[in-house]
Structure formats: C-alpha cells, structure tokens
C-alpha cells in the first residue's frame, strides 16, 4: 500500500487517489484543426516512462487534482505540487 502526498491533505493511502493523466500533456487546440492521428495520439499514446514520471492525480477525498513526481520502478514519490494557480 503506497502513501501519496496530497498537497492539501498530506500523506494518505493510495486507495484515496485516482490517476488522471500524464503531466504536461496539453489538450491540442483548436481541436478541430488537429489531425485524426494527432487526436488519436492525444487520446491513446502515453509516454509511460520507466523511472521518473510526472503525473496528475486526484485526491478523491478532497477533490483536488495535483502533480505528483514518482518513480514507476521503485515507487518512490519525490514531489507533489498543486496545479499552477492553486495554492495550498
């Protein structure tokens, strides 16, 4: 059972969280001008890096989305920050 740090609530068990998206993956817009392949890439292609990974997670208990940096091999969590524009 992993412990994830919510920037607002602190360390909580992983069952309180959901993965949302890989961080830094912006929705391509205007979407109408994105090619079919481009949209498919946005939808279905993930980097799934081995090792350090920046991801958006949501803490279901408080409903806040945040950026978590963790290692997908060792499961070490090295960072947790609110989305830009959000403060603690």
């Amino acid at each position: 059972m992993q412990l994830f740090p919510c920037p607002f609530c602190g360390l909580r068990e992983e069952t309180e969280f959901h993965f949302a998206a890989e961080a830094g993956k912006a929705r391509p817009e205007p979407a109408g001008q994105v090619s079919d392949d481009g949209w498919a890439k946005y939808l279905y292609f993930q980097d799934s890096p081995k090792g350090r990974s920046r991801e958006i997670w949501v803490h279901l208990a408080c409903g806040e989305f945040f950026v978590m940096t963790r290692d997908t091999v060792t499961h070490e969590v090295t960072g947790s920050e609110a989305l830009s524009g959000r403060s603690r």
């Binding site: 949302a20 958006i56 949501v58 409903g63």
Partner: peptide, 15 residues
C-alpha cells in the same frame, strides 16, 4: 460526473 467537472474546472477554467 463530479470528478469530470472538477477536472475541467481545475485544469481548464479559473477555479
């Protein structure tokens, strides 16, 4: 639905 709304709210709109 609540989580979808929260996601767009926090990641697209001014919360």
């Amino acid at each position: 639905v609540r989580m979808r709304l929260e996601e767009w709210r926090q990641d697209r709109f001014d919360p």
